[in-house]
Every structure is written in structure tokens, then in C-alpha cells.
Amino acid sequence: MSQDNHILISDPTLRDGNHAVSHQLTAKQIALYCSAADRAGIPIVEVGHGNGLGASSLQVGLAAIDDFTMLTTARDNLKSSKLAVHVIPGFATIEKDIKPAIEYGVDVFRVAAHCTEADVTERHIHFCRNEGKTVFGVLMMTHMADRFLLAEEATKMQAYGAEAVILMDSAGNYLPSDVVEKVSHLVETLSIPVGFHAHNNLGMAIANSIAAVECGALILDGCARGFGAGAGNTQLEALIAVLERMKYSTGVDLYKTLDAGNLAERELMKVIPTISSTSIVSGLSGVFSGFLKPVNRISQEFGVNPRDVFFELGRRKVVAGQEDIIIEVAKSLKGSKYDE
């Protein structure tokens, strides 16, 4: 489908990375990174609370600054890059969140749902399209559904007016063979481009991203230094370098992306994402890596082993937004220990 081996790069450093710092990114940090990304020619820069627009909450964490401040700051510092937001229906509403975001100058709306629940995105996708905005559908936790079901859900998003569908490996559970199976089926089924968003829990983020483009994905997500929840995402600098070596064009300046990576490491991160033992457990168990911090915190409070908590969460097939189950699991694990 691609005319000239072109891959569209979307950079969620300032959105997914917010998970890594408990949504505490400041306006100054957003301004600095946006300028750097803009200089590097990154086509799409995603900004916001880790769970996207309108998600700042006790449930998933309160953000240091509100959506208005985040988005207007980003807007002021992006000249050629498009400004994107992540929208999860159930958190964000059209009236309270999307309409203001359009006012603030957001160009691209990435409307996301759990991989089996695409029909909750109908009105949000429809609304953004009718407002003349670029809209991508995003399916999260896609390791939990087979390729046929993913294709059905993605087809719904296409019918609603999505201009691309991004598959997220939110749990970092994929191996390249999984990517090939699912992405190539979607490329075959859909008439709109397919994208891939990798997490690095099992060290496969770059390999999985490349597997995706090799079977027809046209959009890839990558974050500076892999800044993201848990083990982090695809590392953007490395991704650009690999794509360049493989003769894909991205329109992104490698040196300036390397500079943006250095800046991100210096200005945004307390620690660079690393594949911790817990992240491996979260990847293997198939649980969203955004659960890492609350699982560690709550496990400590209840005095239980976070690995046990993760495997139990995986067994219960929890999905993003269900952080409250952690308390119940920790409580029941603690209870069962007393029973012994």
C-alpha cells in the first residue's frame, strides 16, 4: 500500500511518559520537549495525562497540571509537528474534554478502547471527524484478542470514520511472530493504514515495530529513551536509526532526534525506563504496564509480593482503568496468607 516506503512516526513521549512519573510532567518540561521534537521534524507529538484527555483522577492518578495547560503549552511550542491527544471514552467526554481540546488547537485525536470494545468510540470518532480533525482509532491490550476479532473491532473504527487504526501492545506481551500474524491480517482487511505501538517488557519493542512495518504497518509509535510506563516503549532514537538503515523514510532528522533523546533524559526522567523484574512479570502475565506503580505501592502497603499480584491480575484479565481491583487482589492475597 505504501507509495514510497514512508513510515509515519507518532511520538507519545509526553503522554505515555507521564505514566512513568505518575503524571507529574510540568509545563516547562512539555515546552522543552515539544520544541526539541518539533526541531527534529517529528510529524505527530502526543501530549497529556498517561491515560489521555480528561483522565486525571484518583483512580489512575492526578496530573500535576491540567489538560488546558498541557495542550496550550505544547501548541505554543509545536510549529510543524501536529499536536495529538489520546482519548478513552469512559474517561473523556465530547463536551467536557474533546470540544475544549479542539479549541486549544489539537490536530490529531487518537480515540482508544480496549481491543474488544471498539463500539464505545463511535460518537467520539464521528464527532472529531465532523470537526475536520484527523482521527485514529486505537485498540489497546491487543494481545488479549485474536486477529479475527481485532479485525472486526478495527473495521468498526473504520466505519465510524477513523483514518487509521493503531494496535497497542499495552502489556508488552507480543513476540514478532504475534505482530506478523495480527498486523498483516489487519493490513489485508482494512482500507485504512495500520499502526503499531510497542511496549518493551520483554525487550522486543524495536523488533516488534520492525516486524509490523515489514508486513505493511504505516504508522509507528516511539518515545524518547522509550519513556513510558514500566519497561517503557519503543525507543524513538533507535527506531529512527533502524528505519533509516532499512531505507524507510520518516522525514525525521536522526541527529536532532538523538538530541531530543538527550534532552528528554536530562529534563523529563527521574530514571530511564529499564526492564525491571516486575516489568518482565507484567509482560509475561499480560497486564498493562501502567499498573506497575500502583501495584508496587499497594503491594508494599499490604505486605504482599507484587509478582503474585500481577499474575493474579493477569488471571482476572484486568484492563486499563481497573486499577481499583489491585486493592481487592492485594487484600485477598494478604487474607489467604493469614489463612495459611
Partner: peptide, 14 residues
């Protein structure tokens, strides 16, 4: 906030 959970067997409302 509302969240639809596809887990099988179906979860009770929480």
C-alpha cells in the same frame, strides 16, 4: 469513570 470489562466469566458490577 466507566469501564467495560470483557472478562469471561462475566464480572459482577463493581
Amino acid at each position: 469513570i466507566i469501564n467495560l470489562n470483557p472478562a469471561i466469566p462475566c464480572i459482577n458490577m463493581q
